[in-house]
């Protein structure tokens, strides 16, 4: 029966075709993500300098890394940056979302204004803010011309304060996006819950604190995860805004890795810093993705 044989062949083809379609993506992921991770981990245990070498040196690179003052500067900076960036973006995003949700006239105009910075590259953002914050021509100079002679804003030239200028620019870029996430959460809340709470006498601030914000917990979690991984990956903004300076005052792990690997020819140390970065992100992302995927099944 040739017809039956053909159907049988077709059925079997339908069975492996989906897997065949998915196979290249899986292969590419295994090679370019996991293979490459493995390779970098291996390199971090070798004495590689300008080019990869396979002379294993144990944890020497990690020991060297954590003895470097630059690395500790980078760690200190990422701690300051990530904390403020995540905290301020979340606060601004939440306030703007709640305020926009008060039947605001012109919401349709305001929302895109809050959101557009997210469409720009960090290089553009950095260029704009670098100039705006430059005391010689930017904000400080303008204030002087407007008659406020004692106004001083020199953070970008000050190695103690320069990291905060990166926070300002990064918050400018991302807080509108966080607003959109919270706004979507707010709009998804069942009206009946709010009405019931209002009948029970909760109003204004208390209503938000006791009812609305707890309901928004998933939005908080998503915002945190997205902001956290953006913070660890931050590279372009520092390059464009301060170039890691003044001196090395605004070095982050991402810029540290790049300069040690490609400029200073310390590939082993660069690789070990990349491994530390990956582990930091994995510590947050793996449990989050696990919970998300398990829940959806």
């Amino acid at each position: 029966m040739s017809a039956a044989a053909r159907t049988d062949w077709r059925t079997r083809a339908q069975d492996w075709l989906p897997k065949l379609v998915l196979a290249p993506s899986l292969a590419v992921t295994l090679l370019f993500v996991y293979g490459f991770i493995l390779f970098t981990v291996v390199l971090s245990f070798t004495g590689s300098r300008m080019l990869p070498r396979y002379d294993f040196v144990g944890f020497t690179n990690y020991a060297k890394l954590f003895a470097l003052e630059h690395w500790w500067t980078a760690i200190g900076n990422i701690a300051i940056f990530a904390t403020l960036y995540i905290g301020i973006c979340t606060a601004i995003g939440l306030v703007l979302a709640i305020f926009l949700d008060q039947k605001i006239r012109g919401e349709g105009v305001l929302r895109p204004i809050y959101l557009y910075p997210m469409a720009l590259s960090f290089i553009v953002t950095g260029t704009a803010w670098k100039w705006f914050l430059d005391p010689g021509i930017g904000l400080e100079r303008t204030m002087h011309l407007w008659g406020w002679e004692s106004f001083s804003f020199t953070w970008i030239k000050d190695s103690e304060m320069a990291i905060y200028t990166i926070v300002i620019a990064a918050v400018w870029q991302t807080s509108g996006f966080v607003m959109a996430m919270f706004l979507a959460g707010l709009r998804g809340i069942d009206n009946e819950i709010l009405k019931a709470a209002q009948i029970d006498g909760a109003s204004g601030f208390a209503l938000y604190r006791r009812i609305v914000i707890p309901i928004l917990r998933p939005a908080f979690l998503s915002a945190f995860v997205i902001l956290f991984h953006l913070a660890i990956k931050s590279y372009d903004l520092v390059i464009a805004l301060t170039g890691g300076g003044p001196g090395r005052a605004t070095e982050l792990p991402a810029t540290f890795m790049y300069s040690y690997t490609f400029t200073r020819n310390q590939m082993g140390i660069g690789a070990s810093s990349a491994v530390i970065m990956l582990m930091t992100i994995a510590a947050i992302m793996v449990p989050y993705l696990y919970a998300e995927l398990k829940e959806r099944r």
């Binding site: 490459f36 990956k233 994995a282």
Partner: peptide, 19 residues
């Protein structure tokens, strides 16, 4: 498979630069 691909979105790309 999906989880493996998804995690790949969030890695710091510094980890793949050298290879």
């Amino acid at each position: 498979i999906f989880a493996l691909m998804l995690f790949g979105c969030f890695i710091p790309f510094q980890i793949v630069l050298i290879p």
